[in-house]
Design a protein around this nucleic acid. Structure first.
Length: 591
RNA sequence: GGAGCCGUGGUGUAGCCAGGUUAACACGCCGGCCUGUCAAGCCGGAGAUCGCGGGUUCAAAUCCCGUCGGUUCCGCCA
């Protein structure tokens, strides 16, 4: 059979959908050639589309034309195939494929479009250099893991939309070209042609706009919002990323938190078949710092930090006693799930602690009634007993201790992570969610010698802490909450200030004069005079959510066209120079 | 801004520390054989001036310096 140039038969089914029940039916498939196996007589073609893969059999005894066409087919060619679905002979069933019980006996095959040999193999496991994959991202996305991640991402956002919309949220778009606001990350800036010398900024988040929408009386807003921050990149940070952003009127923290518990348990049940117990556990910021040394603790592991200061108050071990006498504390944790590691590994722990910025780390291993430790000789029997008692250390178990001020918290937090990874410790669960609440309203910025908002300047102080605003600002907690999953901050939010007087007091602590505040976000302040409802919300990093759900280590693996660490896109070549004429039009000149 | 790691046919690696033959292996690619494979098999073939620049040396993929790209982390990211 001769085919007309440009002719192709349109598909009747998707490759990956064919099953045993379809046996006997005539189908037309369109797809990419994953692989061709030519046995001289019969030719097998693995045909791929977005739904998956199915085997096409081109037997010259069935159709000489189809077989002849198949001989000219190469990898990544796009073809059509008309044929009949057949259950495979029992010994030829491929249990590795969802479609492995069937195959399509080709009666007609034609090439729709050709392809050069791709620069890398389109297959599951890809050790291929990421820069090359990014340059040919459209080929990279043909690989199943990337394709699946993008499918998952689409389903997650779809479900988020369904869920929020069913709860009365309205999806509203906010500007991409907007005004640079102070504090926070460095802005991406866009020059204005109509107003030379002036600039838009791309939004770091729709924060201010969503508050305006609450003042506007829309009651509940959400958006799958692109955000831009001109800061250095990381595995979990891109210059542009996507937030699930939402805001609600007439709510307290509890309302936001419980709604999000519901949304996330739904997502995980639907897409990962994981049942998450709700409500998710909660820790206040203070508890989190005390027990895990971090405001984003990984609760898949125990290794809770305890205070052992009392045990060393009068110790012969000078390093610890001095630390205690100088107002410091001795804190540490037991490495759950590790027994009698070799000396070499214990020494590695000390090195790691130093890398984390600690001046030292002491390990102790329970051996019989005593403790093996580099500092054992400085410890009295009473101290050893007190430690063994307080730590609950069992035979062979390891206790790590560090002494000093608040700076040892992050060190111990780092050591928890390191131990979990280094010793491959068992997880209590695959996904450990936790809310961290009541963050401090302010941090002290040592460089600029002033208070800064921990979250942002519109975050409401806890009602019972408002009186401390002026006297002891660092002790003021806020009505804020972060959702943390496996040690990754997924999102955070707060109840906002709706009382004008409170807002002014906060600005005053931040050292913002009325004029400065007016200049920086006067439009919001003005809006907040016109009957703002009490409101609050939260914003999530969608990329991070999907990354964790897909079991990936980088958000680049769940973004169709991500950027490299230097912010470039190897596919398009962005960023790039522009024509001099463009600069002239914008009244811009390079320095 | 700082620290670490990586860069060798189309792809992934070995070789580099201890400089010295035609730079090795696997996958892919091309050709041949082959009617049940699915990482097909067997036979044959093509394909790399070792990221780039400079230096040391009789001699550099290998040592030194610089630079570019990628990546991880610290700083930064309200």
């Amino acid at each position: 059979m001769t085919t007309l140039k440009g002719y192709w038969a349109k598909r009747s089914r998707m490759c990956g959908d064919l099953r045993r029940e379809d046996a006997g039916s005539e189908v037309v498939l369109n797809g990419w050639v994953q692989r061709r196996r030519d046995h001289g007589g019969v030719i097998f073609i693995d045909l791929r589309d977005v739904s998956g893969l199915v085997q096409v059999v081109c037997n010259p005894e069935v159709s000489a034309a189809a077989h002849a066409a198949a001989e000219g087919v190469r990898g990544e060619y796009v073809i059509y195939c008309r044929g009949t679905v057949r259950t495979r002979p029992e010994e030829a069933v491929n249990p590795k494929l969802p479609t492995g019980e069937v195959e399509v006996i080709a009666e007609e095959v034609g090439i729709i479009s050709q392809s050069p040999t791709p620069p890398f193999e389109i297959q599951e496991e890809s050790g291929v250099d990421e820069a090359l994959r990014l340059r040919y991202r459209y080929l990279d996305i043909r690989r199943p893991d990337l394709r699946q991640a993008l499918i998952l991402r689409s389903r997650v956002t779809g479900e988020v939309r369904d869920f929020l919309s069913s709860r009365g949220f309205l999806e509203i778009e906010t500007p991409i070209l907007t005004k640079s606001t102070p504090e926070g990350a460095r802005d991406f800036v866009v020059p204005s042609r109509l107003q030379p010398g002036k600039f838009y900024a791309l939004p770091q988040s729709p924060q201010l706009f969503k508050q305006l929408l609450m003042v506007a009386g829309l009651d509940r807003y959400y958006q799958i919002a692109r955000c831009f921050r001109d800061e250095d990149l990381r595995a979990d940070r891109q210059p542009e990323f996507t937030q699930i952003d939402l805001e609600m009127s007439f709510v307290e923290p509890e309302d936001v938190i419980s709604l999000m518990d519901e949304m996330f348990s739904r997502l995980f049940l639907l897409f990962l078949e994981v049942e998450l117990p709700t409500p998710f556990p909660r820790l206040t910021w203070r508890e989190a710092m005390e027990r895990y040394g971090s405001d984003r603790p990984d609760l898949r592991y125990g290794m809770e930090i305890h205070d052992y200061t009392d045990a060393f108050a009068r110790s012969e071990f000078k390093v610890f006693r001095n630390a205690v006498e100088n107002g410091g504390r001795v804190r540490g944790f037991k490495i759950d799930g590790l027994v009698s590691p070799p000396r070499r590994e214990l020494d590695e722990l000390v090195e790691e602690a130093k890398r984390l910025g600690s001046s030292g780390l002491v390990w102790m291993v329970r051996e019989g009634e005593g403790l093996r430790s580099p500092v054992a000789k400085f410890l009295s029997r009473e101290e050893v007993e007190a430690l063994a008692e307080a730590s609950g250390l069992r035979e062979g178990e390891v206790l790590l201790l560090a002494a000093g001020g608040p700076e040892i918290g992050p060190v111990l937090a780092g050591m928890r992570e390191y131990c979990a990874r280094r010793f491959n410790l068992p997880c209590s669960s695959r996904f450990a969610f936790v809310w961290v609440t009541e963050f401090p309203l302010f941090d002290w910025d040592e460089e600029e010698k002033r208070y800064k908002s921990n979250h942002h300047p519109f975050t409401a102080p806890s009602p019972d802490a408002i009186d401390l605003l002026e006297e002891r600002p660092l002790e003021v907690t806020s009505q804020s909450y972060d959702m943390v999953l496996n040690g990754v901050e997924l999102g955070g939010g707060s109840i906002r200030i709706h009382d004008h007087a409170v807002q002014e007091r906060v600005f005053s602590v931040l050292g913002l004069s009325r004029e400065e505040a007016e200049d920086k976000f006067g439009f919001l302040l003005e809006a907040l005079r016109y009957g703002p409802p009490p409101h609050g919300g939260i914003a999530y990093g969608l990329d991070r959510i999907v990354m964790l759900m897909a079991g990936r280590d980088s958000i680049r693996d769940v973004i169709a066209f991500p950027k490299t660490q230097s912010g470039s896109d190897p596919l398009t070549g962005a960023p790039d120079a522009v024509y001099p004429g463009q600069l002239r039009e914008l009244r811009l000149r390079p320095l």
